[in-house]
Amino acid sequence: MDEFNASKPIYLQLADRIHRQIVSGELKAGEKLPSIRDMGIKYSMNPNTVQRAYSELERGGILEARRGQGTFVSEQRDRLAQQRVKLKQEQIAEFVHVMQEMGYSAAEILAGVEQYLNSAQKGDK
């Protein structure tokens, strides 16, 4: 439970999580997802909620339900690529919004991000 927060419906948080796993490549195109029940067990989550998350992603064309076989990651790669861009835009928009609210200018934000990424890269090495 601690992994989920209250600001957003749980089914959307689960949908986001699966979405991110697809974008990151953790879940590959055409890969089978755990059954609704197994997913529920994994996150101690109500199967109805898992169902809603899956449905949400199916509507977005990211997942595909195949009758009698289960739920799969879509094989429409362009669709996934599109989603990858969309998710990036969303995250950036959220971040920029918060930064601007706190009064940072575009230049400050840009410089901050650049600096952060550089030092993170150094830290990696």
């Binding site: 439970m1 989920f4 109805n48």
Partner: peptide, 9 residues
């Protein structure tokens, strides 16, 4: 309640 939050509809 926290324990059952994700469990219940």
């Amino acid at each position: 309640v926290t324990e059952i939050e994700t469990l219940i509809d």
